[in-house]
């Protein structure tokens, strides 16, 4: 089954890319924005039918490689 993981920067970590995107959007006329934070999205097809087990595998992946827990948080979503 497919499991998704969303990795986001923790609140107090500076995100210069997000800031530049914010400025660009602002310049394009999207003025009603207070902040932009950039993150990562993974879609992983796990050979496992049990949603609980599939999510547990992806959680392990996030902890060991996909996210750096010093600066990032992760969220797992069952997509299929």
């Amino acid at each position: 089954m497919k499991v998704s993981a969303i990795i986001t920067l923790k609140k107090d970590v500076l995100d210069p890319q997000g800031k530049v995107i914010h400025q660009a959007l602002d310049g394009m006329g999207f003025e009603n924005i207070s902040e932009v934070r950039q993150g990562k999205y993974f879609e992983i097809d796990v050979n496992e039918n049990d949603p609980g087990k599939a999510k547990a595998v992806v959680e392990d992946m996030c902890k060991k490689l996909l996210a750096n827990l010093v600066i990032e948080n992760f969220k797992i979503i069952e997509t299929q």
Binding site: V13, L14, P16, Q17, V20, N68, V70, I71
Partner: peptide, 9 residues
């Protein structure tokens, strides 16, 4: 620690 993108990109 970690190494982030340079402040001024």
């Amino acid at each position: 620690g970690v190494l982030l993108r340079n402040k001024y990109l």
